[in-house]
C-alpha cells in the first residue's frame, strides 16, 4: 500500500516538475507577452495541482493536506485575475504581435493606445495598424 502510494506520489511530482520545465522553455522561446503567459500558466494551474497532490500523499496528514489544498485553491482563484490584468495591459500597450493573431476582436475599437511613451518592445507593431488582411 505504501509502495503504491509512493509510486503515485512520485508520478504526480514528476509530471508537475516536467510542467515547470515546459514553462521555462516556453518563456524563453515564445515571441510575445500573451504567448509567454500561455506557456507560464501551465505550472500555475496543472503543475501546482499535481505537485500538491503528490506532496499531500507523501506528507500523510490531514493538517498538511488542508494547507496544500488551500494553496491549490488560491492558485486556481488568483491565476485568472492576474492573467486578465497582465493581458489587458499588454494589449493596450502594444506588446502583442498583432501580425501573429488569427482573430483580433478588439481591432479598431479604441482598445489600444494611439500615443504612447513607455516600455514598448522593439518589435512592437506600428502605432496605427493597417487594414485587416483577408485570410
Amino acid at each position: 500500500m505504501t509502495a503504491l502510494a509512493d509510486v503515485v506520489a512520485f508520478a504526480c511530482l514528476l509530471a508537475g516538475a516536467a510542467l515547470c520545465l515546459t514553462a521555462g522553455l516556453g518563456l524563453v522561446r515564445f515571441p510575445d507577452v500573451l504567448s509567454r503567459m500561455h506557456a507560464g500558466t501551465k505550472p500555475q494551474v496543472l503543475g501546482v495541482l499535481l505537485v500538491m497532490v503528490g506532496a499531500a500523499i507523501r506528507l500523510d496528514g490531514w493538517a498538511n493536506a488542508w494547507m496544500l489544498l488551500l494553496v491549490a485553491a488560491f492558485q486556481l482563484l488568483t491565476a485568472p485575475v492576474s492573467a486578465h490584468l497582465i493581458s489587458r495591459v499588454a494589449y493596450r500597450r502594444r506588446h502583442v504581435r498583432r501580425d501573429l493573431l488569427l482573430v483580433d476582436e478588439f481591432r479598431g475599437a479604441g482598445h489600444q493606445d494611439v500615443w504612447y511613451q513607455g516600455d514598448e518592445p522593439k518589435d512592437a507593431p506600428p502605432e496605427e495598424p493597417g487594414p485587416v488582411q483577408p485570410s
Binding site: 518563456l27 507560464g40 501546482v48 506532496a55 497582465i86 495591459v89
Partner: peptide, 23 residues
Amino acid sequence: PSLLDRVVATDTLLVIISAGLAV
C-alpha cells in the same frame, strides 16, 4: 524586452519556487 515580460517571468518563477518547496 519589456516590463510585462519580466512580470510574467517573475510570476512563473515564484510558482516554480513554490513547486520546488513542495517537492
